[in-house]
């Protein structure tokens, strides 16, 4: 039985929205999504080799959320996220080599092999960190927004969270405080309807998540998370509102194509209907955008091939880098338990 229908307006709407955007912007958005998809697929295809000894949470099927959203951010804006890190990290500009090194447990991984795939960060591009504890990064991001408020900066902090994260009390503690102080923060909830194998109807009464946030007083949006332009346009409004006026909550409806973690689909285990997956795959965010690009004449087979080759080269080089990087040494184990200096980023 299909429990969760695609609720968006489909490819025609994407095409209609595309007519309002510049070609370069559209190409950039498509490139970001395609790059995330290809990187995720490449990671997945090598995962069985057991060289990446880290639990992965693939974002395949959900690329439009991070790609569309992050395009509305300034490089100096901050992003935090939960365990499903890859797409958020890449969309914010996180370094691919450092990400792969982290997956391969190398000393030069972005977290020095202390965090693994659930803890990606790249402070040089404002990717501030993530938490493997559901909802754990939500107050951290709120605190980052508090910093901006105290320092009178115009920086916006964003936190990506899953639909299960709103079942934790700290979500609402954070939103309550953020609204109280009018902090510059956007909460982006990627509602993919499942927490591991538990459908949302087993976990939450049928009230839209964005309505709950609205009840707290936040400006809230419900978005087709498979439509990269809808995502981008709402993100622009949300980020502008957060920067000037205060907290925004976005609920983006999307679907994860793979199992909760690891490689491959696990629908056959029975917690969701394969027909449901097929339905959502027919609304593939990357393919939808590609078709729009073709019909607008912004992309053709030759230019798409060039794009793909560029990404493939980058992926190969990043794998080479990670595979040939050094492992940590024993002396690294107890390093950085305590901070000796003041390491926060300034500016």
């Amino acid at each position: 039985m299909i429990k969760y229908q695609y609720r968006g307006k489909g490819p025609e709407h994407l095409l209609a929205l595309a007519r309002n955007h510049e070609r370069a912007q559209l190409l950039a958005l498509f490139f970001t999504m395609l790059r995330i998809r290809m990187i995720e697929e490449a990671v997945e295809s090598r995962y069985h080799e057991d060289q990446m000894k880290t639990p992965i949470h693939l974002a395949i099927g959900q690329e439009a959320v991070s790609a569309g959203y992050s395009a509305a951010l300034e490089p100096s804006d901050y992003v935090f996220c939960g365990h499903r890190t890859h797409a958020c990290y890449l969309a914010k500009g996180g370094d691919l080599k450092a990400m792969f090194s982290e997956f391969f447990c190398r000393a030069n991984g972005c977290a020095g092999s202390r965090g693994g795939s659930m803890h990606l960060l790249d402070k040089s591009v404002g990717m501030m960190g993530s938490s493997a504890i559901v909802a754990g990064a939500i107050p951290l991001a709120t605190g980052s927004a508090l910093s901006s408020y105290l320092k009178d900066e115009k920086r916006v902090t964003t936190v990506f969270l899953g639909d299960a994260a709103v079942e934790e009390g700290v979500m609402w503690e954070s939103l309550n405080f953020a609204l109280l102080k009018k902090l510059p923060i956007v909460y982006v909830c990627e509602n993919n309807y499942y927490s591991v194998c538990s459908p949302i109807e087993y976990r939450q009464p049928p009230v839209e998540i964005c309505k709950k946030a609205e009840g707290f007083g936040a400006l809230s949006f419900s978005v087709d998370g498979n439509n990269v332009l809808e995502m981008y346009e709402i993100a622009q409004r949300a980020v502008a509102h957060a920067r000037e006026k205060g907290p925004v909550f976005i609920e983006a409806h999307t679907y994860r194509w793979r199992g909760h973690h690891g490689s491959g689909d696990d629908s056959h285990t029975g917690y969701r209907d394969v027909q449901e997956l097929a339905l959502w795959q027919s609304q593939d965010p990357v393919l939808m955008m590609k078709q729009v690009m073709y019909s607008l004449g912004y992309l053709d087979e030759a230019s798409e091939r060039v794009m793909r080759e560029k990404i493939e080269l980058e992926i190969d080089a990043a794998f080479e880098h990670a595979i040939h990087s050094a492992n940590p040494v024993k002396e690294d184990l107890c390093k950085f338990v305590y901070s000796e200096g003041d390491t926060h980023v300034v500016g």
Partner: peptide, 21 residues
């Protein structure tokens, strides 16, 4: 003064500390 939200406020303080406060 803060809301009566100890977990939230501790995380918020942590986030503020992470970003320079």
């Amino acid at each position: 003064d803060t809301p009566v939200s100890e977990e939230g406020m501790t995380g918020i303080c942590t986030g503020a500390a992470m970003t320079g406060m």
